[in-house]
């Protein structure tokens, strides 16, 4: 299955999802695609003023352009998501989303999708960390593995 991860740039979450046979939906893929696409757009992210306009799909014009620009990047991830793992209040090194308003909107939209969703707090010590990984792995195991394309 295609599993949305939050924070969407968490390498640990992305790795865990892959280990259990699913496809992680991570921000690195979207940004990577933007950067690799040849064009005259803006390096390094190649976000152009057209992206915040596309973000109007998710938020009205009075919502800051930075939120709408980010939502334009989230769009393919949200559209494809079949399941999601959301970590609440992680430390910066675990993965970080720059804008709190975007994060609120993304989490709200995920809930509205009615997909299998695991929401758990970031662990504070080793014991909690073990339980954290266990819960994620059990959740991922419960999902139907991504079909291998023939």
């Amino acid at each position: 299955m295609k599993v949305f991860i939050y924070p969407t740039n968490s390498l640990i979450l992305s790795d865990l999802v892959e280990r259990f046979g699913h496809k992680p939906l991570a921000m690195m893929q979207v940004i990577g695609k933007k950067v690799r696409t040849q064009g005259l757009d803006s390096p390094p992210l190649n976000v152009t003023p057209e992206d915040p306009k596309f973000g109007l799909k998710y938020a009205a014009v009075e919502v800051p352009s930075g939120v709408r620009g980010r939502m334009a990047l989230f769009d393919p991830l949200l559209t494809q998501a079949e399941a999601a793992v959301v970590v609440v209040d992680p430390v910066l090194s675990f993965g970080c989303q720059g804008c709190a308003r975007t994060n609120e909107l993304v989490n709200f939209l995920l809930r509205g999708k009615k997909i299998p969703l695991l929401r758990l707090d970031y662990p504070k010590d080793e014991e909690e960390a073990k339980l954290f990984v266990y819960k994620i792995s059990e959740f991922l195991k419960s999902l139907k593995p991504e079909e291998v394309k023939k």
Partner: peptide
């Protein structure tokens, strides 16, 4: 700054 890159105005 916050949001300049995502607003597409960094260039």
């Amino acid at each position: 700054s916050c949001g300049a890159e995502y607003s597409g105005i960094q260039p």
